[in-house]
Simulated scan of single mutants.
Amino acid sequence: MQKYNVDQNGFYGEFGGAYIPEILYDNVENLKTNYLKVIEDPEFKKEYYGLLQDYVGRPSPLYLAQRLSNKYGCKIYLKREDLNHTGAHKINNTIGQILLARRMGKTRIIAETGAGQHGVATATVCALMNMECIVYMGATDVERQKLNVEKMQMLGAKVVAVTSGNMTLKDATNEAIRDWCSNPSNTYYIIGSTVGPHPYPDMVARLQSVISEEIRKQLKEKEGREVPDYLIACVGGGSNAAGTIYHFLDEEEVKIVLAEAAGKGINSGESAATIHLGKLGIIHGSKTLLMQSDDGQIEEPYSISAGLDYPGIGPMHAHLAQTNRSEVLAVSDDEALAAAFELTELEGIIPAIESAHALGVLAKKEFLPEDVVVLCLSGRGDKDMETYIKHANEL
């Protein structure tokens, strides 16, 4: 799978690498040397898959959304990551990384979070493993994701509201990296997406690849074939998308369609559509596409979704888009909200606003009646109810 996956130097084509302060060199080098040995170790796998089954509730169902399928004239299956413990795909990764941190002798866990789902998943596994947990979250996101902040605090995490910059995910990540630089010996940084210095993008993709592992088995049972015609997911940093497509990357007949957040429109100046607007640069230890001004200053992204409100993109996704392995569509706030209400009305499922961006793809594509489409429903909408209610009142 080398063609689309990371090479031994930590690059996907021209994207990736590890651009880090010297003080973190030993930590990242240690991780790079050990992560594959650990996650391939039979003892680790036994513990990891055991927790995924008994604690998270995997495998998550692959649900044939009949009324949605009828509307779009094809067979649409939803991969129900919203049914996991903590309500999203993020827990797949945090369980793997906390087991890794424990094996490396780390006692203090830090994390960044936007929508709060990764923060909740990190706080959850820290409670489970009895480890100290500090979560950095932009002050803007603390306001708009209050329920998740309260969950993290109840789980015993310290939530630090970050007031620099746009006070969103980028700024939370900056603060987490500063903390890591100050406490390199006892601290493990659980990154929540396929971003950051190598080996994080590859490690997170591998831990999330349980999603596509299950899709293959479940499609075989339901359709008599392991391979769908289309895979659809939303992409910010890119972890649910990476997990959904991982075991299909080399099967070129599978069309990969990803949704990034267009905010108020690609050319509105208020958008987070990095693949459409980004230029090559370095952010959070990785060379990738990012939204920046002509003189290289990072531009503040905007999206109604706290989880997609990031000025960069995981290096794997930058490479897939550049090589045309994936098609990336920009879905606006209004399109995502309309798709969320549509799913709720047709299937009785309230999606996270991030997942609603993936659902927004359906209206933008023409499908054949025999097409089998698998869409990753990455999270549930409890955390977004205030946004949904406000929108419903404006209609």
Rank of each mutant, 00 (worst) to 15 (best):
Glu112Pro: 09
Asp82Leu: 15
Gly156Cys: 02
Ala123Asp: 02
Ala115Gln: 09
Leu99Tyr: 14
Tyr63Asp: 11
Val142Glu: 08
Asn130Pro: 03
Gln153Arg: 15
Asn130Ser: 07
Glu81Tyr: 13
Thr122Gln: 02
Ile134Gln: 13
Met129Val: 00
His85Tyr: 14
Met152Val: 05
Gly96Asp: 00
Cys126Asp: 06
Thr124Gly: 03
Thr86Leu: 10
Lys79Asn: 05
Gln117Arg: 08
Gln97Ile: 03
Lys79Val: 00
Ala115Asn: 06
Arg108Thr: 02
Thr140Tyr: 14
Asn148Gln: 08
Thr122Asp: 00
Leu99Gly: 08
Ile109Val: 12
Leu68Val: 01
Asp141Asn: 06
Leu100Ala: 03
Asn84Pro: 00
Thr86His: 07
Ile110Glu: 02
Gly119Asp: 02
Ala88Ser: 15
Tyr63Cys: 09
Val159Tyr: 15
Ala111Met: 01
Gly114Glu: 06
Lys151Arg: 15
Lys71Ile: 04
Ala121Trp: 10
Gly119Val: 03
Glu150His: 12
Thr94Glu: 00
Leu78Ile: 05
Tyr63Gly: 04
Gln117Asn: 11
Lys79Gly: 01
Asn92Thr: 10
Gly156Gln: 09
Val125Glu: 12
Ala111Leu: 04
Arg102Met: 09
Glu81Leu: 12
Gln117Asp: 04
Glu132Thr: 04
Lys71Ser: 11
Gln66Thr: 13
Gly114Asn: 06
Gly156Asn: 05
Lys146His: 12
Asp141Arg: 07
Ala157Glu: 11
Cys126Lys: 06
Ala101Gly: 10
Thr113Pro: 12
